[in-house]
Simulated scan of single mutants.
Amino acid sequence: MTTLAEPRTAGAVERGIAGRVIDRIGSGVIQVFLILVALFWLIPTLGLLVVSLRSETANNSSGWWSLFAKPAELTFRNYSNLLASGFGSSFWNTVLITVPATALVIGFAAMAAYAFAWIEFPGRDTVFLIVVALLVVPVQIALIPIAKLYGAIGIFGSILSVVLFHVAFGLPFAIFLLRNFFAGIPRELLEAARMDGAPEWRIFATVVFPLAKPAIASLGIFQFLWVWNDLLVALVFADTDNQPMTKALQSQMRQFGTNVDILAPGAFLSLIIPLVLFFAFQRYFVQGLLAGSVK
């Protein structure tokens, strides 16, 4: 009795043993290569950590890789000396500047982007074009006028002045990024919420904002890194009592020059927080970068 063979699925390709072996080897080689690249990328960070844990004499006499032969050289004395020199207050000043500047930019930009994307009002497109045009305004061109303004209203040199400057210059890019993401949300979701009687603020809070987590995470990482690593704005607007870590490190370099036992632990402390933040939110960061690329 003759049996008919089952028809193959259209587009299916039967791979032999050799093909499957090549696939396994290829994926394994790629994974090994990516791991090696990641380790190579982390070598400077590891070197900075080791230098920050060695005495000045040990750093001047040999390279950081000699730690593997003399692990007893490690000490936390550099960090205690750094904190005793007042660097701890600079660390908290950086936190007090970066966190509000990031949160305010995300909050204001999200509301403005929702209005530009889904609310009809006179001159909407014109105002959005003005916001986009502000992206090309360099920071340096506004330093002197804003410094005079801060001096006139009495906030020059304070943490508030640095935060307001970062918020002002962070909003155009944030609005542009989030508006393009919000515009890709299906209109049917918003129309369904409006038919249920939900006001615009509730649609924004319960429908749009949760869907925008990847884009908001990407924006938060960009804004956090920009403010955390900023030196120019801090040099102009922050005085000695309110200086962030970047300005504190710059002053230490100017005073001591080769004082590695102070500069290395300070540089590592300024590096480790953004590094931890990136690895903690890298999943959302990648999703935010790819958002809208596939329809």
Rank of each mutant, 00 (worst) to 15 (best):
F91R: 06
P122V: 05
A174Q: 11
I185C: 08
S270W: 13
L42I: 09
E191N: 08
S161F: 02
F182N: 02
N180L: 12
G170F: 07
G220I: 12
L48N: 10
E56R: 14
G88S: 12
Q255V: 13
R15W: 01
V208I: 10
W64P: 14
L249T: 14
F68K: 09
V208W: 01
F204I: 02
T126P: 05
P7S: 14
S89L: 06
F40G: 09
T75Y: 03
A115C: 11
G123D: 12
G184K: 12
S90F: 02
K247C: 02
V294L: 08
I221L: 12
R202Q: 06
L249G: 13
P186G: 03
A248N: 13
L249E: 14
P100Y: 00
F281H: 03
S218F: 01
F222I: 11
G88C: 13
V233D: 10
A72L: 07
F224V: 04
P186C: 03
F222G: 04
F169H: 06
A84D: 12
A193S: 14
S218C: 07
F91E: 03
F156M: 03
V99N: 15
F181P: 11
Q223W: 06
L225D: 15
I262V: 11
P145Y: 08
N93D: 02
S161R: 00
L249W: 13
L232P: 04
D23T: 05
T206D: 14
A117L: 09
L104G: 10
V132G: 09
V95T: 02
M195N: 05
Y150E: 06
I106K: 01
R187T: 07
F116V: 02
L149T: 05
R54T: 09
W226T: 14
A103K: 08
G28C: 00
W64I: 05
G154A: 05
W118A: 04
F222R: 04
E73R: 09
K247L: 15
A5T: 12
A193W: 06
F76C: 11
I185S: 08
L36H: 08
L232N: 12
F108K: 02
R194K: 12
P138N: 03
A112L: 15
V32F: 02
D241M: 05
L39D: 09
L39T: 05
Y284P: 14
E6F: 07
N93C: 01
G16Y: 04
I153D: 09
A72P: 00
W64Y: 12
E56L: 14
K148N: 08
R179F: 00
A198R: 04
K213N: 10
W226A: 14
A18Y: 06
D196M: 07
F256E: 10
I153H: 11
L149G: 06
F165R: 00
L67K: 04
I272H: 00
P214R: 09
L275K: 03
L49M: 13
A147I: 03
D241P: 04
P186K: 13
M1G: 15
F209I: 00
G151F: 11
F182K: 03
L271P: 00
S293M: 11
V131Q: 03
S55K: 08
W226G: 13
G107M: 14
